[in-house]
């Protein structure tokens, strides 16, 4: 495939680019697919539903155990029912617990003093897990916990805890962490303040990525983010991933902000999917780049039944 490019003396680095930094109100974050997290990442996940949580937390936990890293989950749940984790068939969570690879720490023994959230105690407990891990032969430790409950009744303590965690994890060559919050249960200003204590935003792994096109599931609003270039070589995989993202939904959003190219035949794929949505369903195109907006302007929305323009500009 590179033959022709070489023959014409051209090089091209590929259309899918990692934007690197993302800014919220002047604070910069790195967005990272969970599969690319590494020691030193102190990451934030404000999930809006069980599916989103599963795709990040579940992948974080099971991938860690599969590569013989240590996983520490602060929760009162049983290892079989860890929040956000759907165990693959044949997995034996209790075996991981016995081997020490999976540490499920109940809150009472980790971060409570009486019934109050105690950040000091949590940081000590996690610090001990990390320092023991090296001697136990693990090359990395993955930490995760859900702070929704603590944020509700002790926001200052949670903020202090996050700064302590950032100070412990960021310079570490062993530890990485995902701090989870259910964004439906926490006020927006508190969410923003807590998010600000993290450098990394944990994201689901892409549905598809071949260097030319990347498809990423989105959850707020639900749909797909398209990055790179969409042409006939990828219509089939796109149609299939789109159908999956649309299953059971009425409105499906496509974030086109990073879509560098889309061919006219892809509009056919979109209309076909829109027609399979429930009655009055819509496929909404958000953040259309100028090339796409001009093409649709030329053919007219009337020829694209079931498609609708969404929001424009930045996020």
């Amino acid at each position: 495939m590179n033959r022709s490019a070489t023959a014409t003396g051209e090089t091209y680095s590929g259309p899918v680019r990692d934007e690197g930094l993302l800014s919220f109100e002047g604070v910069f974050f790195t967005e990272r697919p969970v599969g690319q997290m590494r020691p030193g990442d102190h990451a934030w996940l404000a999930f809006g539903g069980s599916e989103e949580r599963e795709r990040v937390v579940g992948a974080f936990v099971t991938a860690g155990l599969a590569t013989e890293e240590k996983v520490v989950y602060v929760t009162d749940a049983d290892p079989l029912n860890l929040p956000g984790v759907r165990w693959p068939g044949g997995a034996d969570p209790h075996a991981y617990v016995r081997s020490g690879a999976l540490r499920v720490l109940p809150r009472e023994r980790t971060c409570l003093s009486g019934d109050r959230f105690d950040p000091r105690r949590l940081l000590d407990a996690l610090g001990e897990e990390v320092s023991r891990a090296f001697g136990e032969g693990f090359r990395a430790v993955r930490i995760t916990l859900d702070l929704t409950w603590a944020t509700a009744h002790a926001p200052e303590e949670v903020a202090a805890c996050e700064h302590g965690l950032a100070a412990a994890v960021s310079p570490s060559t062993m530890a990485m962490a995902i701090c989870q919050v259910d964004r439906r249960a926490v006020a927006a200003d508190r969410l923003a303040a807590l998010r600000g204590a993290h450098e990394v935003l944990a994201r689901p792994d892409p549905e598809f990525d071949d260097g030319v096109l990347r498809l990423v599931r989105t959850f707020d609003p639900p749909g797909l983010r398209l990055e790179g270039e969409l042409d006939a070589a990828r219509h089939t995989v796109f149609a299939e991933r789109l159908a999956r993202a649309a299953a059971g939904r009425r409105r499906v959003h496509l974030d086109c902000g990073r879509l560098r190219f889309m061919d006219p035949a892809a509009l056919n794929v979109l209309v076909r999917q829109a027609m399979r949505l429930p009655r009055d369903g819509r496929l909404v195109l958000d953040r259309m780049p100028p090339h796409l907006a001009r093409m649709i302007d030329a053919v007219g929305w009337a020829r694209l039944p079931g498609l609708a323009p969404g929001r424009s500009g930045g996020r």
Binding site: V212, A232, A233, F261, D263, H291
Partner: peptide, 29 residues
């Protein structure tokens, strides 16, 4: 899978001809 190369090939030369960004994108499509 070579459509991507076809686009690179055409836009590089059309750009040298002096087409502006909007017309380059239209030709690429």
């Amino acid at each position: 899978f070579e459509l991507y190369q076809v686009r690179r090939f055409v836009t590089a030369r059309a750009s040298r001809h002096g087409l502006d960004a909007a017309r380059l994108a239209a030709l690429e499509t």
